[in-house]
Write a protein that binds this DNA or RNA. Structure first.
Lengths: 221, 221
DNA sequence: ATGACATTCAATAATTATATTGAATGAATT
DNA sequence: AATTCATTCAATATAATTATTGAATGTCAT
């Protein structure tokens, strides 16, 4: 590394952070890490990528100051360094959402009509849960649910949704949530539920954002 | 480009935005564009880079949806697409500031003691300006000053600071600002002023943040 | 100690990013 | 129409990123 002036040195540091965010796999890793600490192995399983590859990505993120790691027996658990990483991800997403026609197109093509998917705000959901007016389903896999979920939510992994449909009260509104604002699982759940005649909506964003806004989270540990 | 699932497609879009932020030159361009629209030529002059190089960076940013361009005669003026780009830059900076020991080191080495450089908040400056208690100097070059500055600020480009020192009232506090939170010019101005016995501080952040927070801006155009 | 397992390291190949150069384009001026 | 000037394009060389493979490291259980 050559001698630089301070301005360049700072810009390089900032660019290093942005660069660490500048890869689709790493963003997906961040979304998973936003749920809580995870081992390399668990992350590799979730993303369907080779372990060595995930390890390299995690190390790159550690170098940039996005994640930290801690050994726990045979496992090494990575976690996000703090909420500022999620805030940066969100800010990047905002730029993309506002300006990239491609994002709009993808959302529209895969999720049909955007207004059909108008989400429930956290505040609205919190108050309707208090009044007992709504069934909240967490469509993430069981292992992620166990590590933290909305109090009162029931875990209905997407793969089990169809088989568990008969157990839902038909008049009652259902709100689904998953990992985050662009996690496809809650979109798919809502689409499926509506096809079967249920009144269903998504929660805005996902569990990490719920947690970040100071609302209660329950955990099975 | 291969066929992807929607999740991958979205992550790729988000990553493209982060990637466009992931280069020190481009970040510096963003800081300049935060002051207002600029031509390729003007930007190249400010950064001291070849015009073709700057043109390529700007095109990369345009592809990612960070900037737009508009022809004005011989010139093509680029501008930031909106404040969300600055918000993303700020979020990235926050991650870097919190977690990168290197940033801290650079700041400390070049700016001596960090607490010496405690900035004035926008609110505080606004009220003290109202009371007429403070001299506000804009240490950016004259061309940037002309395109917008704090009302009541006087333009003292860093290069002219020394020769204009005698014109400053010695009892009065001086607040310096420049392009943004990490723009070195205001740090240097404050250091110089203090060396000469003046009471001087920096404004937190710079002009774009002042503007973004809804405070008035004056312009010579 | 030995084997099992999670992770990292090292080496490689393929892809992508970046800087540089000079030519091409397109708008204004003469 | 010829010139000037800002910008872009095209071609190239260099460097950085990414995925992949298999070996190495470190921890736990037996």
């Amino acid at each position: 590394m050559s001698i630089r002036n301070p301005k360049q040195a700072l810009y390089e540091q900032f660019a290093a952070v942005a660069k660490a965010l500048g890869n689709p796999q790493r963003l997906e890793l961040i979304e998973h890490l936003a749920q809580g600490p995870r081992s390399v192995d668990a992350l590799a399983g979730k993303l369907g990528l080779p372990i060595a590859n995930v390890s390299q990505h995690l190390q790159a993120m550690r170098r940039a100051g996005l994640v930290t790691s801690e050994r726990d027996g045979k496992f090494i658990n990575y976690s996000l360094v703090d909420e500022s990483v999620l805030a940066a991800f969100a800010a990047v997403r905002t730029v993309a959402e506002r300006h990239s026609a491609e994002v709009e197109r993808v959302v529209r093509v895969w999720f049909h009509r955007r207004d059909d998917m108008e989400p429930v705000s956290r505040e609205e959901l919190a108050s309707r849960m208090n009044d007992g007016l709504v069934t909240v389903i967490d469509v993430r896999p069981a292992d992620e649910f166990a590590l933290g979920h909305l109090p009162g939510a029931i875990n209905v992994p997407l793969s089990e949704l169809e088989s568990r449909l008969p157990s839902f009260e038909s008049g009652r509104e259902i709100v689904a949530y998953c990992r985050g604002p662009w996690c496809v699982m809650s979109f798919e759940a809502v689409a499926e539920l509506r096809k079967r005649g249920f009144s269903a909506r998504r929660l805005e964003d996902g569990l990490p954002e719920w947690k970040a806004s100071g609302l209660a989270v329950k955990c099975n540990a």
